[in-house]
Every structure is written in structure tokens, then in C-alpha cells.
Computed example of a mutant assay.
Amino acid sequence: MNPKKKLIVFSLLLVISVTNYLRIIKDIEVKPVGFLSIFAIGAILGLLFQEIIAKLKNR
């Protein structure tokens, strides 16, 4: 996949994940679904950082 398209896809997935998490969370308790949302946000953010760093190194 084109590196530029990867950045766009990861960015969109991150926005969707954060929006979903903000919709789910209603109280202080972290339920299993909230935990999985936090985990997904972290994984997508890690992939996004990896792509950004790779793009900066190739300049």
C-alpha cells in the first residue's frame, strides 16, 4: 500500500476509535469494552507513529 494512503487510513481509524471510546465511556469504571477501545487506540497510534517516523527517515 502507498505510504501516503497508509497514513490516511491509520489517521481515520484513530479518529474513529477515539470517537467510539468517547461515546462508550460514561463513568469512571473501565469496562472490558472500554479497555479494548483503549488498547485499539494505542495500537493504531503506534502504527501511525511508525509510519510517520518511516516517512521522516526517507526524506
Rank of each mutant, 00 (worst) to 15 (best):
residue 36 L to I: 10
residue 36 L to C: 13
residue 22 L to D: 05
residue 25 I to Q: 15
residue 29 E to G: 06
residue 50 Q to H: 14
residue 24 I to L: 11
residue 8 I to R: 07
residue 46 G to N: 11
residue 8 I to F: 06
residue 24 I to M: 08
residue 50 Q to R: 15
residue 18 V to T: 06
residue 39 F to W: 07
residue 13 L to E: 10
residue 47 L to I: 00
residue 10 F to M: 04
residue 18 V to S: 04
residue 59 R to F: 11
residue 41 I to Y: 10
residue 29 E to N: 13
residue 52 I to Y: 01
residue 54 A to M: 13
residue 3 P to T: 07
residue 47 L to T: 00
residue 40 A to F: 04
residue 28 I to P: 00
residue 31 K to V: 14
residue 27 D to L: 00
residue 14 L to V: 05
residue 45 L to Q: 03
residue 4 K to N: 13
residue 58 N to M: 13
residue 43 A to D: 04
residue 50 Q to S: 15
residue 10 F to W: 05
residue 12 L to H: 07
residue 41 I to P: 05
residue 58 N to Q: 14
residue 22 L to P: 00
residue 6 K to N: 02
residue 15 V to G: 01
residue 9 V to S: 02
residue 54 A to W: 11
residue 15 V to N: 03
residue 16 I to G: 10
residue 28 I to K: 09
residue 57 K to N: 14
residue 4 K to H: 13
residue 43 A to S: 05
residue 9 V to A: 09
residue 38 I to V: 10
residue 29 E to I: 09
residue 51 E to S: 12
residue 20 N to V: 09
residue 49 F to T: 11
residue 26 K to L: 09
residue 5 K to A: 13
residue 38 I to C: 04
residue 23 R to V: 06
residue 45 L to W: 01
residue 21 Y to W: 02
residue 53 I to C: 07
residue 51 E to P: 01
residue 55 K to S: 15
residue 49 F to K: 14
residue 35 F to R: 01
residue 40 A to W: 01
residue 8 I to C: 02
residue 4 K to W: 12
residue 32 P to A: 10
residue 15 V to A: 13
residue 8 I to Y: 04
residue 44 I to S: 00
residue 39 F to Q: 05
residue 19 T to N: 10
residue 48 L to C: 05
